[in-house]
């Protein structure tokens, strides 16, 4: 099977940019990243359809000249799903902004608490670690208080 290099390069560029954006903290950037990545993935399906051909409508062209219709059907489904996902993520980003004033993806609070426990367990050996942990403590505790107020 011959593959279309332009499509592959565009897809990898989109996916690469998407991955970069997903690593950001802000949910709206993550969302843009996910969208770029989704578009890149959809292009990959175009690659898997093989070389371009006539529209796959019965009677319009000989069957051998038609392009493979199945990947297009799959991409259509994927696009619809991506639409729903985008709407939901936007709603979540908005809600997060309503609650916290930003839409940053937050740390696992309980996990931070356990890390803190481990850090404070042995104060003499790891004084610096414990010291850092207390600064972090204050930050996470604040987050927690906000959440508590919300509930």
């Amino acid at each position: 099977m011959s593959a279309n290099l332009t499509l592959i390069l565009t897809a990898s560029f989109l996916i690469g940019c998407g991955v970069y954006l997903i690593l950001e903290r802000s949910l709206s950037r993550v969302l843009v990243g996910l969208l770029m990545m989704g578009n890149g993935v959809n292009l990959l399906f175009m690659v898997s359809a093989g070389p371009a051909g006539k529209p796959p409508i019965i009677g319009s062209a000989p069957t051998d000249d038609m392009t493979d219709p199945l990947p297009q059907a799959l991409v259509l489904t994927a696009v619809v799903i991506a639409l729903g996902t985008t709407a939901f993520l936007l709603a979540m980003a908005h809600r997060s902004w309503q609650l916290n004033g930003n839409d940053d993806v937050q740390d696992d609070v309980e996990d931070a608490a356990i890390r803190r426990l481990a850090a404070t367990d042995d104060v003499s050996d790891s004084h610096e670690l414990a010291h850092e942990a207390t600064a972090e403590d204050l930050a996470t505790d604040e987050v927690y208080e906000e959440e508590g107020a919300e509930q």
């Binding site: 996910l34 939901f88 993520l89 979540m92 997060s96 609650l99 609070v109 959440e147 509930q151």
Partner: peptide, 18 residues
């Protein structure tokens, strides 16, 4: 849509979309 659920939900949704 409480604060804790939005926080946990964000991670869950992003991981699953990925």
């Amino acid at each position: 849509g409480t604060g804790a659920r939005i926080r946990a939900g964000t991670i869950y949704v992003v991981v699953n979309i990925l």
